[in-house]
Every structure is written in structure tokens, then in C-alpha cells.
């Protein structure tokens, strides 16, 4: 018995066989023992499945259960289409983001380089000094007050 006949026996059992073929299959079952054995086996299997199928009880309403499935399908579809959108903005990832990073680095460099130069924008008098004079009796002394933020060199010519 070929596969086509097996499928026709299954269709007959399910009541899906076209009326034109019904006569041939009924005659086959009447005379072919293999066909009849297969038919009876399929029939027994169907009865077994029908009688022992587990009933699934939902904890929520039927509508809510199916709406969850619908939402999940919808979400999956959106996830699958997302890469296309990303591809549309791929230039952003390739150019703008690296340039943004470089710009941030540049700003940091600017801050790092500007800080010491701004602190050099003046001259605080240090301790050591050197005096060259054409006038006698000239003396020089210095002091610094950290609290007042002043450094003084006093030149006395007396």
C-alpha cells in the first residue's frame, strides 16, 4: 500500500474524502486486509487521543489569553523590523558618534591645557632676588603673606 492510499484512508476516517473516491476506498477496505488493519489502527489511535486529551484550564479569560499572544506576535514583528530602522541611521553611528567622542576628548584636552596657562597669567615674587645698583646705601628685603596673598620687595635707599 502506497503513501497516497494511506492518506486517503486517513481522510476517510476524518470524513474528508471526496465523494467521488468514497466508493473505491470502501471497496479497498472490504477486500484488502492491510488497508483494513491500518484503518482500524488509525481509528483506535483517534479514539485513544480523544478520550485522554488533557483539558487546559486558563487562569484568565479567553480574550485576555489570546490578546497576550497577539501582543507577543506584534512585539516579535516589531523586533524583526527594528534592524532596518537602525540601518537607516547607520551613518549616525559611523560618523556622528565617533566625532562626538572626539569632540568630548578635545574639550577635555582644552580644559587640561588651559588650566596651567591661566595659572601662569601673573608673576608671584619668589624669595630669591638680585639687586644691581648705582646708588650707595641701597638695601632690599622681601616678605610674603600667604593669608593676604601678597609678596613684597622693599627697596630702601637710606
Amino acid at each position: 500500500m502506497n503513501r497516497e492510499l494511506q492518506l486517503k484512508l486517513q481522510a476517510h476516517l476524518d470524513g474528508e474524502l471526496p465523494p467521488a473516491e468514497l466508493g473505491d476506498i470502501t471497496e479497498l477496505l472490504a477486500h484488502d486486509q492491510d488497508a483494513k488493519a491500518l484503518y482500524m489502527e488509525l481509528q483506535a489511535t483517534r479514539e485513544l487521543v480523544r478520550g485522554n486529551e488533557l483539558a487546559l484550564k486558563l487562569t484568565e479569560s479567553r480574550e485576555f489569553y489570546w490578546s497576550k499572544i497577539a501582543r507577543e506576535i506584534d512585539r516579535n514583528e516589531r523586533t524583526q523590523t527594528a534592524p532596518n530602522r537602525t540601518r537607516d541611521f547607520s551613518w549616525l553611528r559611523r560618523w556622528v558618534l565617533p566625532l562626538g567622542g572626539v569632540a568630548a576628548l578635545t574639550v577635555l584636552l582644552a580644559i587640561a591645557l588651559q588650566a596651567p596657562s591661566s595659572s601662569r597669567s601673573g608673576l608671584r615674587l619668589a624669595e630669591a632676588s638680585e639687586l644691581e645698583t648705582t646708588v650707595d646705601d641701597t638695601s632690599m628685603n622681601s616678605f610674603r603673606s600667604e593669608s593676604e596673598g601678597i609678596s613684597v620687595i622693599w627697596i630702601s635707599s637710606h
Binding site: 608671584r124 615674587l125 619668589a126 639687586l131 632690599m140 609678596s151
Partner: peptide, 17 residues
């Protein structure tokens, strides 16, 4: 007279006199 003076960076609000 000429004074040669060693200097350091001057901070904001400080005076060298």
C-alpha cells in the same frame, strides 16, 4: 638700579608688590 626677581605663577586675587 636693576632688580632681577625670581617669580612663580600668580594666583587670582594675589598681588606682587
Amino acid at each position: 638700579r636693576t632688580v632681577r626677581q625670581k617669580v612663580k605663577p600668580l594666583l587670582q586675587g594675589e598681588y606682587s608688590i
